[in-house]
Amino acid sequence: MSIRKSLIALSLVATALSAAAAGDSDIVQSVQLKDGTTMHHYKDGKMSMEGKNGNIVFMKEGMTMETTDGKTITMSGNEVARLYMQKKLENKK
């Protein structure tokens, strides 16, 4: 097989793998908060925040948030880049 065909095959495999990864968001739970934002909880225990309008919100680790039903959640991690890439990949579909 020529180098050119190998590179084409490799790029097709990489594209397929990235598409498969985009389909698995790792979000196990999304919780509505009292202020209208949404907290996304990932499989690895880290979290990200999304504003009322779908914009990504920066939240300091350790900050407490109140859910719509009055429970309190403490921010673990701040997966801004993770949520950004997830949203970017979802918009390409």
Rank of each mutant, 00 (worst) to 15 (best):
A16T: 08
Y84M: 05
T38N: 09
G62K: 12
S6K: 15
E61C: 05
N55K: 14
M49R: 07
T72Y: 01
K93M: 13
A19N: 11
Q86C: 02
I56T: 08
D44S: 05
Q32D: 07
V31Q: 04
D24I: 04
H41Y: 10
S11A: 12
A9H: 02
N53K: 14
K60V: 10
M59D: 00
M49D: 00
A16I: 12
R4C: 02
A14G: 09
Q29R: 10
S11N: 09
G36S: 03
T74M: 11
K60D: 06
S6P: 11
S76I: 01
T37S: 02
Y42R: 02
N55H: 15
M75Q: 10
T64S: 13
K5F: 08
L12V: 09
M59S: 11
G62V: 05
I56Q: 01
A16R: 06
A14T: 02
I27S: 02
S18V: 14
G36L: 10
Q86E: 01
S11Y: 05
A21M: 12
E66Y: 05
S6Y: 13
S11P: 03
S2I: 06
D26S: 06
E90S: 10
E50I: 07
Q86D: 06
K34L: 08
A9D: 11
F58A: 13
A22D: 00
F58D: 15
K60H: 11
D44C: 03
A21G: 09
L83N: 08
T72L: 04
I3F: 12
E50Y: 10
E66D: 10
D69W: 09
V57W: 04
A9V: 12
G77K: 00
V57P: 09
S25P: 02
R82F: 00
T38R: 12
K71P: 07
A21R: 11
N55R: 14
